[in-house]
Design a protein around this nucleic acid. Structure first.
Length: 584
RNA sequence: GCGCCUGUAGCUCAGUUGGAUAGAGCAACGGAUUUCUAAUCCGUAGGUCGCAUGUUCGAGUCAUGCCAGGCGUGCCA
């Protein structure tokens, strides 16, 4: 376009065609440029087409409608690309690494110590994981940060409660057990019980509330006995959430933990820095940063509170300290926060303060990746009947149990071990996929029935496509087919059937899916791609027999199977952390 | 009050810096299995893209106003 017009600022806007009759790709950019140059778009399109040198890729471009340029890929081009992927020892599936690799911090999951992970943690945990996986695959230097809640106000009451109970032992209810010695050996359910008890008392007794606050101070001053108790509780909690990460195939472990406690000694310096700069001022006793454009109900400036009137720090402080650490120590060029949409205002203020403070260079991108709420069938936030949060472990258990029942009915002859493996992959995959496949910004209704229906756009549909390919591979030997031999060093293909061409073209579009999903942190772009791939494969599978195909057709079809298999496996397992299975 | 998000087929949802006749799945209806897994495939039907005005060659997409729901809005995270 530049060559045809002499303009350097033009964008061809080449996109996949909305309708197959317009070819494979269409250039939408001509009309806008023609308008800018005040010229006839169809004539301009012709001029651009005359300058185009893409004979090796496409058939002769067609000009259509008001000035679209329609492009149809040459079969030879498709063949060359497929063979290239087949020969690629690195298994990149035609996805290039980015030229400008960046250090990207991804902050996600963030469970609270001493509380079981519940359905509210699901989205941050798995969306963050998938974003990390995609960016990593594209060649970025990804630093996963699990900002666990281990140091806040609520943590004080947890530590304080046993002591306080002993003080008040005379008022203790009948049968209450002494807690202080036992806490270190508690399992997560007891810790959670302890947490709830402490919270209840905290809310009803100002005396205990004061006591709990002192306890936080003791912890923050690194009082040895208090710290010891704290460590026990943190370790105990990790024993709970690590297995959940493992079950979800989420790549988080102790090495990614940088909880609130990690920033403990960086809080005061951050506040001091802002005070010294004159950005932070006292208002109603609290240390606040006031930013332009933020108003409260009374149309007064809305504060970003960085230190409470009692001198204690809060989550804004921790986030500011973490921000500096990530920028200065981790060298982040992009920081992605994966939290629910309700925290939007907080992050706007955090980013604004960071901006004002001059902590970040202009080329550093701060991004709040939000998501909606998981709802129950009643359209309200997903809770148990008694109003409690639904535990993630219970949710996973139920999904696996339900999936097991389906496996039993569909495929009763498999061994128990196989059934369990499939149930695990299908059940947990279904939960994750249902989440990923929604636009993350919408709320969605959690429904086991829908996600495990195994029809339509669900994980099992893709797992099934994968299993069918594996089945073909298992049967090959019986039919006298040596797949290795057919595919190794394959030099030419025989691509003719509509289903073959359709599938081939889609396989080659994997990189488009990953790049758009990663650019906008939208895993649903990837799930859509994988679903379409599986659909096209199923059509192909129906129309085009593989093992009994003519000798000149068979390698082509085997290759399409192999590449579909690799792409599904890569997309599901490597990028979404959903297992595939050989049989189902 | 102000701010943000959401509103697309009966239901659940896609829809990529504005592109051609708005797409899937479920549910409904009709068909396909002597052939590699029918957890599949093919087809039919189903729409005032919340409402209105505007911007333009072109609007589900952008702007403005309105309606409905959700969330947020000074010491929780």
């Amino acid at each position: 376009m530049s060559a045809a017009t002499g303009q350097d600022d033009c964008n061809a806007l080449v996109k996949p065609s909305g309708n197959p009759k317009f070819g494979d790709y269409q250039a939408n950019g001509i009309m806008a440029l023609a308008k800018k140059l005040n010229t006839n778009p169809r004539q301009l399109a012709q001029q651009v087409v005359d300058k185009l040198d893409i004979d090796d890729i496409c058939e002769t471009p067609e000009i259509a409608g008001p000035g679209f340029i329609n492009l149809r890929l040459k079969t030879n081009f498709l063949v060359d690309r497929l063979l290239e992927i087949n020969a690629d020892a690195n298994n990149r599936l035609a996805v290039d690494k980015v030229a400008d690799a960046q250090t990207v911090v991804v902050d996600f999951s963030g469970p609270n110590i001493a509380k079981q992970m519940h359905v509210g943690h699901l989205r941050s945990t798995i969306i963050g994981d998938s974003i990390s996986r995609m960016l990593d695959f594209l060649g970025h230097n990804v630093k996963r940060q699990n900002h666990i809640g281990d140091w806040g106000t609520q943590f004080g009451m947890l530590i304080a409660y046993p002591d306080w109970r002993i003080k008040c032992e005379s008022q203790a209810p009948e049968g209450a057990e002494p807690l202080i010695d036992a806490v270190g050996n508690r399992c997560i359910e007891d810790l959670e019980w302890l947490y709830k008890e402490a919270k209840r008392v905290f809310d009803s007794s100002s005396e205990f509330a004061d006591f709990a606050r002192k306890s936080v101070t003791q912890l923050h001053n690194l009082h040895p006995a208090t710290v010891k108790l704290w460590k026990n509780i943190v370790d105990e909690s990790r024993k709970h959430y690590q297995p959940i990460y493992d079950r979800l195939s989420v790549h988080l472990d102790k090495s990614n933990e940088r909880g609130e406690s990690f920033y403990a000694d960086k809080l005061a310096p951050a506040v001091d820095w802002l005070k010294d700069k004159g950005l932070a001022t006292k208002s109603d006793g609290a240390m606040c940063v006031f930013l332009d454009g933020f108003k409260n109900k009374e149309d007064q400036p809305l504060p970003f509170i960085i230190q409470k009137s009692d001198g204690a720090f809060l989550y804004a402080t921790t986030d500011l300290a973490a921000m500096r650490f990530r920028l200065d120590e981790l060298g982040a060029k992009r920081i992605i926060y994966v939290t629910d949409a309700r925290q939007k205002l907080h992050f706007q203020m955090l980013f604004g303060t960071t901006e004002q403070a001059g902590w970040k260079d202009d080329d550093v991108k701060l991004q709040h990746v939000t998501f909606g709420t998981v709802l129950g069938e009643d359209g309200k936030p997903f809770k148990t009947r008694s109003g409690e949060n639904i535990k993630l472990s219970d949710l996973l258990d139920e999904a696996v149990t339900r999936a097991k029942a389906v496996v039993e009915s569909k495929n009763p002859d498999l061994s128990d071990a196989e059934k369990d493996k499939i149930a695990k992959a299908v059940g947990i995959g279904a939960i994750k996929y249902a989440d990923y496949s929604n636009n993350r910004e919408s709320d969605y209704v959690f429904s086991f029935d829908k996600m495990l229906a195994m029809e339509g756009n669900t994980a099992p549909y893709m797992q099934y496509a994968f299993a069918r390919i594996k089945s073909i591979e298992r049967k090959a030997a019986d039919k006298g087919v040596d797949i290795e031999k057919d595919l190794k060093g394959l030099k030419k293909l025989n691509l003719t059937d509509a289903a073959e061409l359709d599938l081939a073209k889609h396989i080659l579009r994997y990189s488009e899916a990953i790049e758009s999903a990663a650019a906008e942190c939208r895993p649903n772009y990837l799930t859509s791609y994988l679903y379409e791939l599986s659909q096209k494969f199923s059509t192909f599978y129906n129309d085009c027999p593989v093992l009994i195909a003519e000798a000149d057709k068979r390698p082509t079809r085997l290759l399409l199977c192999k590449l579909t298999e690799k792409t599904i496996a890569h997309g599901l397992t490597n990028l979404l952390g959903i297992e595939v299975v050989e049989k189902m």
